Simulated scan of single mutants.
Amino acid sequence: MSIIPESPSRLRLTPISRLAAGGRWRVEAMRSLREPVLLWFTQGQGRITIAGTQRGYGPNNAIFIPPGVMHGFDFAPRVQGTVVFFGRDHGLDLPQTPQYLRPRDPISQKELIATLEAIQRELESNRAGSQKAAQHHLGLLGVWLDRQLEREKQLESMAQPRPGAAQRLVARYSSLLERDFRSNRAVADYAEALGITPTHLTRACKAACGKGAHQLLEDRILFEARRLLAETRMPIKDVAEMLGFNSAGYFTRAFQKSAGQTPSAFRKRPAGPAVPRI
């Protein structure tokens, strides 16, 4: 059974506010991308959960998320910034783990802003070689990331402590969940694979990100359900089957409890503004 790709394999930039144009579930529910992404927040604040660990974000925060890593963040109208979708064919040597960056000096902030503006300018240009130029500027963005990471290492002794046992455990759970969330496995199955009890796993999840293990699992499954309903014409019974539900009826009840409407009603709702696929 084929699935429409979640995102095209090309470089693109979009305002963070547009990510929620098709519904706040697009940013707040747990999901993962098949490409790296950089979130650059310029206004507003909230909480972001990445690989099962929750942290705060605010103005002048840059957050890099590698492909295949579950994440979601609180969204409010005042939250502004830019998201960079690197595309799956970016050809860069990028970090393999999530990175929270807080460029403290104005020079670093201006460098990032100038690079993002240059990428956007080339992407919107009709001049010969504009795509090639945009990719070169993306390479400079990779250099900026490397420099910021080096500075973060220098300040590591004064930064937040190393992840605790609960955070490491939830990161492992999130990785397993991202791999197997379509398999109809229950929280108890994941806990067994991790060598712990479901109660221990739930406590660790709540300590790390404020959500229980079952909530994280349900959130990830129902985000994928919304995505498939919104972006494909796949029959609802096939969506249910793909996500591991025993029947379309059970899927409908679970979806309605979470989204407040049936899958068919969700699919028929007004489309609203065009939304970048994530």
Results as ranks from 00 to 15, higher is better:
Ile221His: 01
Ile278Tyr: 09
Gln54Gly: 02
Ser183Phe: 04
Glu124Tyr: 12
Arg172Ile: 04
Arg24Asn: 05
Pro263Cys: 13
Ala76Leu: 02
Arg34Thr: 02
Thr232His: 02
Gln261Ile: 15
Gln154Arg: 14
Ala128Pro: 04
Leu228Cys: 00
Arg147Gly: 01
Glu178Gly: 10
Gly210Ala: 11
Leu217Gln: 01
Gly56Cys: 08
Leu149Trp: 03
Ser174Lys: 06
Lys132Met: 14
Ala159Glu: 11
Pro263Ile: 13
Leu11Trp: 00
Ile16Val: 10
Leu116Ser: 10
Glu152Arg: 10
Arg203Ala: 01
Leu177Ile: 03
Gly195Tyr: 08
Phe266Gln: 09
Leu140Met: 07
Leu229Thr: 04
Leu194Cys: 07
Asn184Val: 08
Gly195Arg: 14
His214Thr: 03
Asn61Ser: 13
Arg233Asn: 02
Glu28Ile: 04
His137Asn: 05
Pro270Cys: 15
Ser108Asp: 12
His136Asn: 10
Ala62Leu: 10
Val27Tyr: 15
Asn184Ile: 06
His137Val: 00
Ala191Glu: 10
Ala265Leu: 07
Gly195Met: 06
Phe223Asp: 02
Pro77Asp: 06
Ala186Met: 13
Thr232Cys: 04
Ser9Gly: 08
Glu124Gly: 13
Ala133Phe: 09
Gln215Ile: 02
Ala29Arg: 02
Arg269Asp: 06
Ala128His: 01
Pro103Glu: 12
Gly72Pro: 06
Val187Leu: 14
Gln148Asn: 05
Glu152Cys: 14
Glu192Pro: 08
Lys110Phe: 07
Ala271Lys: 15
Ile119Glu: 12
Arg12Gln: 03
Ala166Gly: 05
Asn126Pro: 01
Arg269Phe: 13
Glu28Thr: 13
Gly244Asn: 04
Pro161Glu: 11
Ser9Ile: 11
Arg227Tyr: 01
Met1Glu: 04
Leu222Gly: 01
Ala265His: 08
Pro36His: 05
Glu218His: 10
Arg269His: 07
Ala20His: 06
Pro77His: 03
Ser130Phe: 12
Gly142Lys: 09
Lys257Val: 07
Thr232Ala: 03
Lys153Pro: 14
Gln45Arg: 15
Pro5Asn: 13
Gly91Glu: 06
Arg233Leu: 11
Ile236His: 11
Phe251Arg: 01
Asn246Thr: 12
Arg185Phe: 00
Gln120Ile: 10
Gly139Ala: 00
Ala271Glu: 12
Pro95Asp: 07
Gln45Asn: 15
Asp89Ala: 07
Gly195Asn: 12
Ala191Thr: 11
Leu123Phe: 05
Ala240Gln: 13
Ala191His: 05
Lys237Cys: 05
Leu217Thr: 01
Ile16Phe: 08
Leu11Ala: 07
Gln99Trp: 09
Ala193Trp: 13
Gly58Thr: 15
His71Pro: 00
Gly56Ile: 09
Ala271Phe: 10
Gly91Phe: 00
Leu92Ser: 07
Gln131Arg: 11
Ile3Tyr: 09
Thr115Ala: 09
Ala191Cys: 15
Ala230Asp: 03
His200Phe: 06
Arg179Trp: 13
Thr197Glu: 03
Leu38Asn: 13
Thr262Val: 06
Gly212His: 14
Arg78Glu: 15
Arg55Cys: 00
Thr252Ala: 13
Glu122Val: 12
Ser125Asn: 04
Arg78Cys: 14
Asp89Gln: 03
Gly87Trp: 01
Glu231Lys: 05
Ser125Phe: 15
His71Asp: 05
Ser108Trp: 03
Pro15Gly: 12
His90Trp: 09
Tyr250Gly: 03
Thr42Val: 10
His90Gln: 12
